[in-house]
Design a protein around this nucleic acid. Structure first.
Lengths: 223, 223
DNA sequence: GTCTATATCCCGATAGAC
DNA sequence: GTCTATCGGGATATAGAC
């Protein structure tokens, strides 16, 4: 059963994979609406018929794409953090992962993520998928964040689940802003923001850390 | 006044205004791409010819719409803050302005804002307009934030210009998240995040502070 | 300036050969 | 499953009467 099934099955699987890869790239670059089914198929070295045979519709292709990402993108995003050692360095690594525009693949996801969000606001079917995917990502990162904060001894602004929301929101917003106008987002800005949210004692701007109270700097005497 | 000039000139101006108003509403609700020129014209009580006579193209209509907003939207957004008194209440008011979805008009702008951002990432012509508009908004809010932090005695995570970026990023990201999944963004979460960013000493996570939590309405039992 | 009518194009989806 | 060919629909934009 090996030979025949292998070649046929592999061609089918490869076509599917190539269609998805092509769709991911084109959708991110030009937007879902701006990309025709023919364009996706052509970029994958197939024709539009293949798309409909595999996914039934353009929407089906988009949903399959979302489903594929559930296990890949955000997991990878946070996985790299553990490698670094210093607390501040780890926060910096998170932002680097989000904001890096040098690599094609990593530069893709924020725009696409943004587009999907926008689509979700109008298309309930997309909203369901994105919501589930987002919830999983938040739970996962909440666990990691919780472990991280207690290991570093930070005093965050909110419990883990909500802190995860805050962090993701800040990173998303900063990535957006950096894409629009890179000069307004210096490299250390995300670090400062994240440090403030998680209550990391080290990174204060001008005040040298007195190490008695973590989040609470001295209250200036005036009113 | 002049009878002839009044009727003719006013009809032209009114047509232009109605086209812009209709475009704003439809673009926000359904997305720029999903709305045809005919639909805009019809909603304004005109036909598509009027659009091309006034704006030359659909893109021209969009740019005219952006130009119109430069002086209106975000200025109004922050202006309302000054009314409140307590520091925490003021932070809450900012978030309330951003996240309020009850009113039609206020519910419109975040989606449209996000869509424009997305468009700006792909269309340089749009990017120019949005970037300028955003820079103005940031400068304006930086001034207000600076005055605010010094009056309240907060110790922010960054200098005013950069702090404004952080705050806008957090609000943007939270608004996105709330739109996708409202349950994950409790009302006081934004307050906590903002307080952490600006270094407001009062709002700590679980510690009951005196009576500064005035903004918080009852939380309806989820789902 | 505004309308009606239309030219032109391109998209999503389907039908049928292989 | 994949390709070629095509249908039907709807989009932007233009032409010309008024």
């Amino acid at each position: 059963m090996e030979r025949m099934a292998r070649t046929q099955g592999e061609r089918k699987a490869e076509t599917r994979a190539r269609l998805l890869a092509a769709a991911a790239e084109l959708f991110a670059d030009q937007g879902v609406d701006a990309v025709s089914v023919d364009a996706v198929a052509e970029a994958a070295g197939r024709t539009s018929g293949a798309v409909y045979a595999h996914f039934g519709s353009k929407q089906g292709l988009l949903l399959a794409l979302l489903d594929l990402w559930k296990d890949s993108v955000l997991t990878v995003l946070l996985a790299e953090v553990a490698v670094t050692d210093s607390p501040a360095g780890q926060l910096g690594a998170v932002w680097a992962n989000v904001s890096d525009t040098s690599d094609r693949e990593s530069a893709r996801w924020p725009v696409l993520e943004h587009e999907l969000w926008l689509r979700a606001a109008r298309d309930p079917e997309v909203a369901d998928v994105v919501r589930v995917r987002n919830a999983e990502a938040l739970r996962y990162s909440a666990r990691r964040i919780d472990a991280w904060t207690s290991s570093v001894g930070a005093t965050p602004a909110a419990p883990p689940e909500e802190l995860a929301v805050l962090i993701k929101a800040l990173l998303t917003g900063l990535a957006l802003q950096k894409r629009l106008d890179p000069d307004t987002v210096p490299d250390d800005l995300a670090l400062r923001g994240l440090a403030a949210l998680v209550g990391l004692p080290t990174a204060d701007d001008h005040r040298a850390s007195d190490r008695s109270t973590s989040t609470r700097p001295d209250r200036p005497p005036s009113n």
